[in-house]
Simulated scan of single mutants.
Amino acid sequence: MRWLHSKILLAFAVALSAAPAFSQSANFGKLTLSPGFPATAGQASGNTGGTYSLSSIANSDRNNKPCIGYGSENPDHIMVLQSKFSKLSVEVNSGKDTTLVIRGPNNLILCGDDTKTSKGVSKDASVEASNLPPGEYRMWVGAMKEGQRWNYSLTVRQ
């Protein structure tokens, strides 16, 4: 009986270690936001890097935008929306070619790549979304090629 118990515990430990990226903690912390949040509450920073294909989280988002790039298996940031948001934008600023994948409640997927700006197109990623339900959103900031490591700032705006 003791042998069976130890085998069950071992199998459970192996299953936990193989848990998908969605269940792991964030590399660079958590943003907790309520409507009307101050600008500083929507700011974070981190760095890209990794060999995990972000398309393995999802091939495309709810708007059929492709989810691309490479990053860490762990999400880079966790954003908790304490209530519904009618509109939010999430922008990456690195001066490099970045991507963005966001996985929210009920398997809501948002993906971003190049951003249109008043001066043309930036290679940095962004996502604009509306009607976001409250809950936890896991965010991965990626690079176009495996292992590219760039510092970035992340800004969430209403």
Rank of each mutant, 00 (worst) to 15 (best):
N47K: 11
N131L: 10
N107Y: 10
P133F: 09
P38N: 03
G42Q: 07
P75Q: 08
V101T: 07
N47C: 04
L100H: 01
S118Y: 07
S72R: 09
A39K: 05
T40D: 15
N93F: 07
P105C: 12
I102K: 01
D76F: 12
E91C: 04
A125C: 11
A44L: 09
C67V: 12
S72W: 09
Y70M: 14
G135R: 13
S118R: 04
S55R: 01
L132G: 04
S89G: 05
Y52N: 00
G120V: 15
V92H: 02
T32D: 14
S45F: 08
K84F: 04
T117K: 01
N106Q: 12
S86D: 15
T51R: 05
V80W: 03
S83D: 12
M79T: 13
P134V: 00
L81T: 03
S122N: 00
F37V: 06
E73D: 11
L108D: 08
N63T: 06
D97T: 06
S72M: 11
N59K: 05
G50T: 10
G46R: 05
S118P: 06
V101A: 02
Q82N: 14
D97M: 07
I102F: 00
R103K: 14
M79Y: 04
N74V: 14
S130A: 09
S34Q: 13
L132D: 06
G69P: 04
I57F: 07
S45V: 02
G112L: 04
T115H: 01
S94N: 05
T117R: 00
P66F: 14
S86Y: 08
P75T: 07
S118C: 04
V80D: 12
A39I: 09
F85P: 04
G36K: 10
R62N: 07
K116R: 14
T99R: 02
L88R: 03
K96S: 13
G42H: 12
S55H: 06
T98D: 11
V127Y: 01
A125K: 01
G46S: 12
D114Q: 14
Y70T: 09
E128A: 03
E91Q: 13
H77A: 05
C67T: 04
K87C: 10
L110T: 07
K84T: 13
P35K: 02
S86G: 13
D97L: 10
D124E: 09
I109T: 03
A39G: 00
R103A: 11
